[in-house]
Design a protein around this nucleic acid. Structure first.
Lengths: 252, 252
DNA sequence: CGAATATTTGAGCCCTTTCAAATCGTGTGG
DNA sequence: CCACACGATTTGAAAGGGCTCAAATATTCG
């Protein structure tokens, strides 16, 4: 399973795993499921703590306020496990939704718990992965709390660029980010109309563009400046960092 | 050390620890430090991954945007370890600041790492504590992304009420929340002026009040309704839940 | 090819910010 | 223990960013 390989690669990258650990992780089996766009995820195993590995598409963790406004709290790209903290936490109050037609693989909670049971390294690797997700969350708090619309969108584009690049899904100046502007709005805490305006602005300034679910970056440096973005909170391999520099020089 | 006892109690509450684990946790020793208000925290042991246990006061994790605006990403009350995920994560880009004159106890990173080294239960307990902090973070994202000023403040008051109650620091209709309105603004992503208006409104409506760093709750139900607050994401003991009901009936 | 969505554009309004100034509190030094 | 000084809170008015409502135009998908 490709997604699992990517997931193990991620864990190995940030927590150096030994061969035994990698083997037992690679041996994980789960149940595949295909989701339509905007379809809610529910574990076929019945527990709210089962894990969901993304194989394709994009999954969002969402919440609705009493006024019916939706906020997307996190997004998960292929190779990531949605809400990996759910392994040990109580069930969360958020709902997982496919933001695009997606394939996921459900993994029984017990499968992962057993893996952690007698391996501190694996437990720590999961925890570390979970911390990475939390680091993104912290950036989102800053984004929502203290940045204007344009900066929010720019910051998000930078973040996703790094994450997709890390997963090897960046095709030089552009990458696929399969969301609608409405969904984008629910991520950055704005209105679809406002998001549209902001994208127009970025386009006119030849900084970046977003069309047909693809983000195209014309000027990486300008985008990071607008978005007040510093990638240090994300895991990056040197190759990707180099590639990012490349985006800049190749731009405009 | 009182703070450590509280910390171990927390861990024991959400992850049932056996006696051995509790003993080794209770044996933790650290270096005390007193902080002035708005003083930045720096570990005396030199590592960015050392842990900081709050003994009194209030610690905030903060970040400054390029425009000089500050956002507080998390607050930590006595008995909590600031940013416990730092045990295994890379150093974060956020800064810890004392929001009020505070006492903390610094614990060497190696001390905690050793505790986790041969104990999956302790590792999981730390991870769980870390997930709890993440759960709060998610609520903040919703708060900042999709709620109006009044709702944000109301939600924060509810959250802090539950957290202080959980720590046994609630003195029936009120609790000490040692922040200025400016700091409050940096938590809820607003302006001090706006926060002040909102508090006036809550006061006039006899829902809650905030004066001399004390939050006084007149009408718990109204406050939770205004703040769109559901406490399920927080750890609560039944006694506190009962107490909350009490706040309501005792009100107005 | 047609229906349902998504994107785009425009105008008016509202929430929040900014800027300013007055009042109130609190901590410190005498 | 008092007075002073600085920071915090309060209040007001004007400006601005983002929202709402609405309608036109593009896309996408069956």
């Amino acid at each position: 399973m490709e997604a699992l390989r990517e997931f193990v690669r991620r864990l190995d990258f940030h927590s150096e795993l030994n061969e035994t650990a990698k083997e037992s992780l690679s041996a994980i089996r789960g149940r595949p499921q295909r989701l339509d766009r905007e379809e809610e995820l529910r574990s076929p195993f019945g527990s709210k703590n089962d894990a969901c590995l993304v194989a394709s598409g994009l999954i969002g963790s969402t919440s609705i306020t009493k006024e019916g406004k939706r906020q997307i709290i996190a997004v998960f790209i292929p190779g990531e496990i949605c809400n990996i903290g759910a392994i040990i936490a109580k069930e969360s109050s958020t709902t997982l939704v496919a933001l695009e037609m997606s394939d996921v693989v459900w993994i029984r909670n017990s499968t992962l718990v057993e893996l952690t049971q007698d391996s501190v390294p694996i437990t720590k690797a999961f925890w570390r992965e979970s911390e990475l997700q939390a680091a993104v969350l912290k950036e989102w708090v800053i984004n929502l709390g203290r940045r204007f619309a344009r900066e929010r969108v720019a910051h998000l584009f930078c973040e996703m660029a790094c994450r997709y690049a890390y997963a090897g899904q960046m095709v030089e100046p552009e990458f696929v980010f399969p969301v609608t502007q409405r969904q984008l709005a629910d991520i950055v805490g704005l209105t679809p109309v406002r998001v549209n305006n902001v994208i127009s602005g970025l386009r006119e300034n030849r900084v970046a563009d977003f069309q047909r679910k693809k983000v195209r970056i014309f000027d990486w440096v300008a985008l990071t400046r607008k978005g007040d973005f510093a990638p240090s909170y994300l895991p990056l391999r040197s190759r990707e960092l180099a590639a990012q520099a490349g985006i800049h020089s190749a731009a405009n």
